[in-house]
Structures are given as structure tokens and as C-alpha cells.
Simulated scan of single mutants.
Amino acid sequence: MTAIVVLGSTNMDLVTYVARAPKLGETVTGREFRTIPGGKGANQAVAAARAGGDVAMVGAVGADEFGEQLRHTLVASGVDTDLLRTAEGPSGTAHIVVDDEGGNSIVVIPAANGTVTCLGPGDETLIAAADSLLLQLELPLSAVLAGAEAGRRHGVRTVLTPAPAQPLPPELLAAVDLLVPNEHEAAMLTGVADPRAAADALLRQVPEVVITLGAAGSLYTARGMEPVTVPAPRVTAVDTTGAGDTFVGALTVALGEGRPMPEAMAWASAAASLCVQRPGASTSMPYRTEIEV
């Protein structure tokens, strides 16, 4: 079983469903509201665990009811939370609007996540024993960098999802093995709109890149090779929240099992296609038996 450590965020998603998202200054009436455990780190941990990985979560929840619910959700999905800290104050929240096309807009309030500024006791030992380390950008960059450098020291495959998109320090990219942005994040990082050209630009900083393209699938390239595009299954999206995290979690499990990258991408796309057909993030993520049907 692939050993995966996720250093990342835990948030309670506060999700409002509307026919269309409001414009600036506009009020619209929604049809439903849900609280759903999420956060990019926790989402990737749940996705990887359900896909068959042996997953441990490093980060922080708040000393509140949301924190208890977030921890319970991870444990229920088989994620080890022994090194998930409890910080004073509230847990992180994500305020999400989902429209009838399945699109979403999100405001994240870090709260407890913002207290994770460095690795804590036992974190590096846990990382050193893993096959893969998953990172995102909803924790302070100092913690992300510390995790990536620990992964590099111990020869652990380090996978970074550069979201929310922001300029990345060269020392972080130097410690990353695989970068997995979506097409918008890739464009923001490079200033290049075309995914293939953006991937080429990113290869100057990291050895491997997978760019997710939504319904169009995903694009992979590595130094010295031609890009490969893997299509995604055609489905009707209900809610795209968590799709990218599902892809990354499943992709990491597949790579840890020794699958070739195109096969791993296809398997991850199958997982993400199941996710978007259901509402919510962690609640919509498929189990291995579903992905392999």
C-alpha cells in the first residue's frame, strides 16, 4: 500500500447552491446550504485514502465543533490524524457558491491553518517514512517550504498543487518533483495561456508537470519528452468542488503503485469524473471499488 503524507489545510466548507452566482453588489436567492468538511489538504487526504493509499494528515484544526467534525471525517475515511494539531480558536472555513452549471467561487479564511508555520515534532519523521508528500498553498508558505525540503532530504516524491495560485519562491519549486496546477494556475504562474506552452515554461523549474484541463482531461510532460494529453470521461457535472483534489489524491496512489503516468492520469480522471457528479467535496470523493468499475 502506498504511504502518503499530506501537509495541508483543513476547512469546513460552507456551501450555497444558486442558479447563478451573484454579481458584485447583487443579492440572489439560493436554494440550499450545506456544511461539508473540506480544505485542499484534507480533501487530498480523503481522496487518496479512499483510492487505496495509506494516508497521514499533518496540519491543524481549531478547538471548535468544526474541528471535531473535520477530524472525524478524516478518521472515518481511514486517514491517520495523530499529527493533526488542535490550535486555539476557530477552524478554517471556505465559503463556496455553486451555480447550476457546476461552477464555483470560493473565499477561504485560514484560521487554524494559519498557525502551521513550520513542521512540528514528529512531522519530518513521518514524511521520511512516506512514499509521497502532498502539498498545497492553503498553509503559510514557510510550512509548505519546510515540508518540501524535508521530502527532498529523504527522497520522498513531493507533489505540489499550486492553489490558491500565487507566485512561488524558487527554493520551493527546487524541492518539488511533480507540479499539478490546473490550466488557470499554470497560466498565472507562467503568464502563458496555452497549457502546452505553460507546461514547457514550468519545466524550467520542476522536472515533471501535470496540468488538469477540466472536461478536456489532463496534460503531462517531463524534461526531454513530448507532452501527452489524457482525455477525461464525459459526464454531466453537478459540482466541481474538490475535483482537482480528487485527481491529485488518486494520481498519487496510482503512481505509488508503479502505474505509468498516462495510466495513472486516466485512473485519476475517472475518480474526478465521479466526484463532479455529486455535490460537495469530501462527501463526493469515490472509493477505489467505484473508480475501478
Rank of each mutant, 00 (worst) to 15 (best):
P169D: 09
A48N: 00
L24H: 13
D54W: 08
D239S: 07
M261A: 07
G280V: 03
L141S: 03
A163L: 07
I109E: 09
T115H: 12
Y287E: 12
T115M: 09
V206T: 02
A254Y: 03
Q44F: 10
G214R: 03
H95V: 07
L141C: 00
L213S: 09
Y287T: 12
V210L: 14
D13G: 09
S77A: 14
T221V: 15
A129G: 15
Y287M: 11
A266N: 03
I36D: 15
A175E: 02
T246Y: 01
V253A: 02
L160R: 13
V75N: 06
R153P: 04
P164N: 14
I127T: 09
A150F: 06
D80K: 08
A201E: 11
S77C: 13
A21H: 04
G67S: 03
A130M: 05
L70P: 04
I109S: 13
T190C: 06
A130S: 15
V116R: 00
G92F: 04
L202S: 06
E185C: 05
G122T: 08
A250C: 14
G30R: 07
R278W: 07
L178T: 09
L219S: 04
V61A: 05
L70M: 09
H184T: 15
G120P: 06
A243F: 03
A21Y: 01
L251I: 01
A148L: 10
C118D: 14
Y287V: 10
L274F: 09
D200C: 11
A197K: 12
N43H: 00
A243L: 05
L219M: 11
V46L: 02
V238D: 07
L135R: 03
P110E: 08
P169Q: 15
G67P: 02
P121S: 15
I106W: 06
A129Y: 12
A19T: 07
P231S: 13
D194M: 05
Q277M: 09
G151D: 02
V253P: 00
G67C: 10
